[in-house]
């Protein structure tokens, strides 16, 4: 579709910018007597702590996930994760799971329990009706207790958000410090060819829209499990 306003808007922007605005440092330094240095854009050391070694990162991630009301499940090996998942299914009475084609998912999710593999295509109503969606992830972020997802690592867009429970399978080596690390990892892995959708899942779905009272499971998953595989 032709877009007659594109050049008009861009021209207006260029015209508007012919007059330069004072920089933030100039504006906010105007009440001070001393000249102000330009602000930097290097923000990393200003952000919340992310841990400087593996043990610290793990402790921060666990604490953050717990504060978000996500559930951290430590597993020694993939086989251990499989046993813990089966126990969870038995406890909750889950019979229908959905997952995608990936090494960890294949090692952990019992095939007879997962009628939906999103890579093979799926019916939307059927996916909405499963007990839990199980995915891998790009990485875990200690700083915020987040799971980084992408369409490529998590079996598409819907699997990690449509089912009522989301279970993430991650290896210890996938834990990174801060959000900057997470983006660096994506950049190194995909280069120019980024996934069509990526981002951070931070705890289960939540809302405070009614009287600012926290309720979990507004539209997305009511529960978020992270199976943390140590091997």
């Amino acid at each position: 579709m032709n877009n007659p306003s594109k050049e008009k808007v861009l021209a207006r922007i260029r015209e508007a910018l012919r007059l330069r605005a004072p920089s933030p440092a100039q504006i906010h330094g105007r009440h001070a007597n001393a000249p102000v240095a330009e602000y930097t854009r290097d923000f990393r050391d200003a952000m919340p702590p992310a841990g400087s070694n593996d043990a610290e990162r793990r402790a921060i991630f666990e604490a953050n996930l717990d504060a978000l009301k996500g559930q951290f499940v430590a597993c020694k090996t993939a086989a251990d994760a499989r046993a813990k998942l089966e126990a969870l299914c038995a406890e909750r009475g889950w019979a229908k799971l959905a997952t995608h084609r990936a090494p960890l998912c294949e090692a952990v999710v019992p095939a007879e329990k997962s009628p939906i593999i999103t890579d093979d295509g799926y019916d939307k109503n059927a996916l909405a009706a499963v007990d839990a969606g199980i995915t891998e992830c790009e990485c875990l972020v200690a700083q915020t207790g987040s799971v980084m997802f992408s369409t490529r690592a998590c079996g598409g867009r819907a699997l990690s958000v449509l089912p009522p429970v989301h279970i993430v399978l991650a290896k210890r080596s996938q834990l990174v410090g801060d959000l900057s690390d997470a983006y660096a990892l994506i950049r190194a892995k995909y280069g120019e060819n980024l996934p069509d959708c990526l981002g951070f899942i931070t705890g289960p779905s939540r809302t405070g829209d009614i009287e600012r009272i926290l309720v979990l499971g507004a539209h997305g998953p009511k529960e978020l499990f992270v199976f943390f595989i140590e091997e």
Binding site: G156, R157, D196, I201, S205
Partner: peptide, 23 residues
């Protein structure tokens, strides 16, 4: 919102690509 990070922060780059099952 007084949160460390909100529940979902998602970046979208376009329509579904060939290797994806949905979108």
């Amino acid at each position: 919102a007084g949160q460390p990070l909100t529940g979902y922060n998602t970046q979208y780059a376009g329509p579904r690509t060939a290797e994806n099952p949905d979108g």
